[in-house]
Structure formats: C-alpha cells, structure tokens
Design a protein around this nucleic acid. Structure first.
Length: 605
RNA sequence: GGCGCUGUAGCUCAACUGAAUAGAGCAUCUGACUACGGAUCAGAAGGUUUUGGGUUUGAAUCCCAACAGCGUCACCA
C-alpha cells in the first residue's frame, strides 16, 4: 500500500512536470498488473489523454520515462496500448514485508477515545421459537460487521433487540398452559427455546384443527368456502383466548406476566447457548417490552408537534407521500403500538444510553421498506443519525428444495446445524487419520473449530445482500473456497514455524535487503499489503464477504507457490529466512482476516 | 398492479470506485504420492455476463426498456 501511495504521488508529479496539470495523488488509481504482462502496478493513462493531447502510447511512454528517472521505487516500465506497467524495485518489496512484519495487527486500526461511535443491532430474535439458519446468517454477519467496523477505527456497541412481547408469545404460553402438564426445560431435558418452540407448533396444530372443523361447520350451514374459513379463523376459541391473554399482558396482569417472565427466561437460556456456540455476543440488550411504551410517547409527542395526524377512529398516522412513500400507521385506534412504534421507542432509549454517531441495523431484506420509513420518521423526530441510519440488508437463505418454511418442516434449526457441522468435521478428520495423536479433548476442540469454520465461512463468503443457497452437503467441503481449507493452510504454516523454531532458527525483525525474490514472492508481499485496503473497503461497504474472499485468494496464492519446494530445506540462508518470514506473515494476516469474521484458526488440524 | 432487490460456466459463488483475454471452487476428464502436513498441487474442458437499445477511448459494472426470480405494499412482529 505504501508503494502504491508513493507511486501515485510520483505519477501526480509526473503529470505536473510533463503537462502542467494539477492532479491529486489520491485520485490516481494504480491497479495490479495482470499476470500475463510484466510489471507490478499499472497506470491506465486514458484519463490523462486530454491533458497530454497525445496518443495513449506516447503519453504512457512519457510518464514511464519520467517515473524511471525521478522515482526511486520504479525499477522499470513497459507500455502496452494505454497501459503503463511499472516494475517496482526489489528492495521496496523487502522493505514492505519488514513493515508488515513489524506490526502484529497490520491493517487494523485501534479506535481512539473520540472515534465515532457506531451501534450495530443484530440477531433480534422472537422469543417463541428457537433460532434457525436465517438467524445464523444474521448473527454471523452482525458479528463480522461489528469486528470490521471496529477494525476501521470506530468504537462499536453491539446490541440486540429482543422481541419478547406480542401475540406470538401468547400463543406459546397458552399452549403450554393447555397441553403442557407443567413441563420445564429441567423436567423435559429440552433446551428452553426448543421447548417453547414446540408449544408454538402445538398451538398452530390445534388452531388449524379448530379452523378446519369450524369451516366445515359453517360450510354445512351454507356459507361459501372462503367466507366460512375467514369466519372460522375469527371465531376460533383458541385464537380468541390468545388475544385475551395479550390484552391481560398489556394490562400487567400479574399471573400472565409471571408466566411470561418464566417462559422467556427459559428461552434466553437456550439462546445464550446458541450464541455461545456461534461465538457471538452483545454489549447491550434491549427488550421490546421495555421500549414499546417509549415509542408510544414519542409518537404522541410527534403528534402534538404536528408531525403526525390522528384519524377519526383515533389511530395515529404519518403522511410520507411527499417523500414518495405512503401513509404509515404508528398507533392503532385502541392506542396500542405496532412494529414501527417499537423501533422508534428503541431508538430513543438507545440514544439516551449512548451518544451514537451511526446506527446500523442488521435485518433481512424483507424489511427494506420498513427501514426506509424508519429513517424518515427518526429524522422527523430529531435523531441526528436517523436520516443516515444504515439498514444492512441481507438476503434469504434458501435450501436446495426451496425456501425454509416452518409449516412444512423445512426449517434448519441452528443448534442441529452446529452439531451436525462439528460432527462432520470430526468424522472426516477421523477418517483421514488426522487426529491419531490427539487426546479426546483436543479432537473435540479441533472439530469444533473446523466445523464452525466451515459453517461460518460458507455463510459469510457470499455477498450479504444476495439470496443464497445453503446446501448441507456442500457446506462441509474441506477443499476449495472453504473455511477448513484456509484453516488447514494456516495450521500447516504454523507447523513449519514450530519446526523452524525447534531447529533453532530465529526470525529477524529486519530482513537483509539483498534477498532475491521471485515474481511470485513479490506478488504475495503485494497481496499481504492489500489487507489494510481490503479491511478499510469492507468497512466502508459493509462487506464481510470481501474479507473472506481476500483470505481465500491469499491462501491459494501461497499454496500454489510453496507446494513444490521446501522452505526448511532451502540452502540459501537468506532465502530461507525470507520465506519463513513471508509464511509467518501469511499466517498472521489470514488469522487477522478470519478473526474479523469470527472464525478461529487451529494450530493443528 | 406500484415500489425495491437480483439475473455471470452444468451447479455454488468472485470481479475494489467503468479498464487489457470476466476469475475461483464443486462436478467431469488427464497428470503428480521418498509428502517442510496429500484435508495437496498442476493441466484440460466449460461464457454472446437473461435479452434489446444507449452513454464512453473502454461496460458484467452507468442509463432506458423488456423478460425472469424474489421481496414488499398488515391496525403481524
């Protein structure tokens, strides 16, 4: 990176000297030279033809000649059409590697005391069922994003808004009361979230049976099928009971609240286990049961200020038609809150708790419209970060046989998934005889790291905003663009370094300047140096996948080169040291990069 | 229907703010095992970047239109 900056500045000076043009060094783009041409960095001269008023070849030639004479870093150049390929002096690469080597956290920026404060909301589960594959993508993206944003020098607060109230929880509670026989996580041996989820399913089953029965009855009485079904859904005693329970909840009925608290506790314990397995966590958790009333207050205040309006039935609305959107309900006629109201209340509480500069919501793309509206509303209500809130919108995870649908039982449960990935990792390693000299604990630990690495990398390498396909069979592949392949390369390098240390080789802090590097080695140094730019770009674009794909490309490049010969048996001492340092830094950068994604690296596997 | 997102090899995915012959992996075929760790490496084959226009020295990328897929348009959360 330093080399690129230097050359960009030199190129700017060249343009000034040759054509008298003032071009900012920052605007000059140097690209990596394509493999089939000679050189390391390429300046595309087309944009400067209007300055030189000469043919592309001539312009490139002039700039090349100038740089050759005036820039220490340029050791040669060649021109092909409008492309000026520059060859960087070997010593510059060695110096660059020294530079990378001297910084254990190369590419990462420590946030200062007064760095911008970024709050990232992710996960945001409902408390009526366990987490599934879609939540896993959310959690991994949220965690990775937080790491990356922090590595770009921001202070980060990770937050979770738990949707702990509403009709869906009442359904689980009611079913537990009716069909549960007092079952608890302890008595049943089930994880709390799974237990509650089972009762949610039970509710749905009984409810649908009721509806079916009622529909048939109404049809027999002569109603049209559709009308009969609609009526049945309304009349269902079970649903009416659930609604009644919600009303009691809102009225703070002690009995309902006690049950609600107890069952939510079970769920939280279950979630905590899942979060722990996924390696994610939060700095501050909010509950909608605390924030929804706050939201109502905000809306009523807005109403007084004339930001919103009340309809005849008493409901409160925001008119966003001047913004190109529609009208949006904020409070129901009965005064209760809707989803949007809660988000407003949550925003207020957050702003009171933290001096937020920027807010990022990690939420699925089915809510794009919601966040478009929320940004406008928060802005109207006077939140400084409202207008510029970021909805980190990610796509759905699809399965080979289509979408996940809870009704059709095609949901992939998060806990099952994690267990299965780890089991597969263990099995594959056992078959390959990888674990022969390890203790059971070591085996378990490595299998956990590798299984989770496979899962995380699989979900994170894909551009977040796209829908993606999760194929269980492929996700545990250990070759190609996968987490385990990267982990494996890391473990191998660590093994080499251990052997080097055992044989008494000590790595110097500064490399001898006169090592001869092959083109490929120079490229790896260049690739390593890119890490800083990749992290910065990933932070600006909110793009964990960029980091993932970078790591893979680096590892692949390293493997290709170092497969054929032995670092440790290299006879030229300088070369050997150089290669060890280069390898050590590949391992370091890969660990840093994967670390940003929440993926651990095993020392052995 | 309105709005939004997506469309790249058989499949899953890349391609930084427009740049040279659009890259990987899987699957298929062919090679390399006295291996610093073979959970590897090399090679072959595979493309009119959905289609049609436009802007540009240059377009997968930007603009317009069509087609296809998905999402959303709840007094659900």
């Amino acid at each position: 990176m330093k080399i690129e900056q230097q050359l960009a500045a030199d190129a700017a000076a060249a343009l000034k000297a040759l054509y008298g043009a003032d071009v900012e060094a920052g605007s000059i783009q140097l690209e990596k030279t394509k493999r089939e041409f000679e050189g390391h960095l390429t300046l595309v001269v087309f944009p400067y033809l209007r300055l030189s008023r000469k043919k592309p070849e001539e312009t490139a030639e002039e700039i090349g000649r100038y740089l050759m004479e005036h820039s220490a870093a340029v050791a040669g150049y060649n021109v092909i059409k409008g492309f000026l390929n520059l060859t960087v002096a070997p010593a510059a690469w060695v110096a660059l590697l020294d530079d990378i080597n001297s910084d254990a956290r190369y590419g990462l920026t420590e946030p200062g005391e007064d760095a911008p404060l970024v709050m990232i909301e992710y996960s945001s589960p409902n408390t009526n069922k366990p987490l599934h594959l879609g939540h896993v993508r959310n959690n991994l993206l949220g965690w990775a994003l937080a790491q990356i944003v922090e590595a770009c020098g921001n202070r980060v607060v990770k937050t979770n808004i738990v949707n702990d109230r509403g009709i869906h929880i009442c359904k689980s509670m009611l079913a537990w009361q009716k069909y549960g026989n007092g079952e608890t996580p302890e008595s049943s041996g089930k994880k709390g979230d799974h237990l509650i989820g089972d009762y949610y399913v039970a509710f749905d089953q009984h409810y649908r049976a009721e509806v079916k029965e009622l529909t048939a009855k109404y049809e027999a009485e002569g109603m049209a099928p559709e009308a009969a079904k609609e009526r049945a859904e309304k009349d269902s005693p079970l649903m009416q009971e659930a609604h009644a329970m919600l009303v009691r909840w809102e009225q703070n009925d002690p009995e309902v609240r006690a049950l609600w608290r107890k069952m939510n506790e079970w769920v939280y314990e279950g979630f905590d286990q899942t979060y722990k397995a996924l390696g994610v966590g939060f700095d501050k958790i909010y509950y909608e049961s605390d924030t929804y009333l706050e939201g109502r207050k905000m809306v009523l205040e807005g109403l007084e200020k004339g930001l919103f309006y009340r309809r005849d039935d008493g409901s409160v609305w925001a008119d966003l038609r001047s913004e190109g959107l529609d009208e949006k309900l904020l409070l129901r006629a009965d005064g209760t809150s809707v989803y949007m109201t809660q988000d407003i209340g949550t925003a207020k509480m957050r702003f009171e708790d933290f001096p937020i500069d920027k807010m990022i919501y990690v939420v699925g793309n089915e809510q794009n419209y919601h966040f478009q509206v929320l940004a406008i509303l928060l802005d109207k209500l006077g939140f400084e970060w409202g207008k510029s809130l970021v909805h980190f919108s990610y796509g759905m995870v699809e399965l080979p046989n289509g979408k996940m649908k809870s009704r059709e039982g095609t949901v992939v449960d998060a806990d099952d998934l994690v267990a299965e990935m780890v089991r597969q990792a263990r099995e594959t390693a056992d078959e390959a005889g990888k674990f022969d000299d390890m203790s059971e604990e070591e085996k378990d630990e490595v299998a956990r790291i590798v299984g989770m690495g496979a899962l995380k990398y699989f979900l994170l390498k894909v551009d977040a905003r796209k829908n993606m396909l999760f194929n269980p069979a492929e996700s545990i592949d250990f070759n190609g663009n996968t987490g385990p392949f990267i982990q494996y390369t890391y473990a191998r390098i660590r093994s080499i370094l251990r052997k080097a240390a055992d044989s008494g080789i000590r790595l110097p802090e500064t490399l001898p300047a006169d090592v001869e590097l092959s083109r490929k080695e120079e490229e790896i140094v260049q690739h390593l140096a890119d890490f800083a730019a990749v992290v910065r770009q990933a932070g600006a674009d909110y793009s964990p996948s960029a980091v993932a794909n970078y790591c893979y490309a680096l590892v692949k490049e390293y493997n290709q080169f170092y497969h054929d010969f032995s670092v440790l048996r290299e006879e030229d001492e300088k070369k050997k040291i150089f290669r060890l340092v280069l390898s050590a830094n590949v391992a370091k950068i890969v660990r840093l990069g994967m670390g940003l994604l929440g993926i651990e690296m095993p020392e052995r596997m």
